[in-house]
């Protein structure tokens, strides 16, 4: 009788120990996953820094070559079309 009780107590204490291990393992999984998530979000901050968007950090890269302002000038082409009756002067230039 005494032996039986001893075995039951022993088994019970083993059960408790296993449960504790499982709880700990589950905790470990949660902590690991949280760690990865935190790491990935930290990476985003690093990328923000690299792109120069973080205030206080000057971005020394010039994104496009500097160009001065384009300059314009205007030219004209003019002539008049007259009616055949109003003109009888000979043509100049080269008739093709």
């Amino acid at each position: 009788m005494h032996k039986k009780r001893k075995e039951r107590v022993k088994r019970q204490s083993k059960d408790i120990s296993n449960r504790a291990v499982i709880i700990l393992l589950l905790l470990l999984i949660i902590v690991s996953i949280t760690g990865i998530i935190l790491y990935l979000s930290a990476l985003e901050t690093t990328e923000t820094f690299n792109s120069g968007k973080l205030e206080g950090y000057p971005n020394s890269q010039v994104e496009s070559p500097a160009k001065s302002v384009p300059q314009n000038v205007g030219g004209k082409v003019t002539f008049s079309i007259v009616s055949p009756e109003s003109s009888s002067k000979p043509s100049e230039g080269v008739q093709v």
Partner: peptide, 22 residues
């Protein structure tokens, strides 16, 4: 940033006049 060059154009003979005709 310093732009060391200048851009500019000028034009001579700004009008091409072909007179009149038909």
């Amino acid at each position: 940033l310093t732009i060391s060059g200048t851009t500019g154009i000028t034009m001579h003979n700004s009008t091409i006049n072909l007179g009149s005709g038909y």
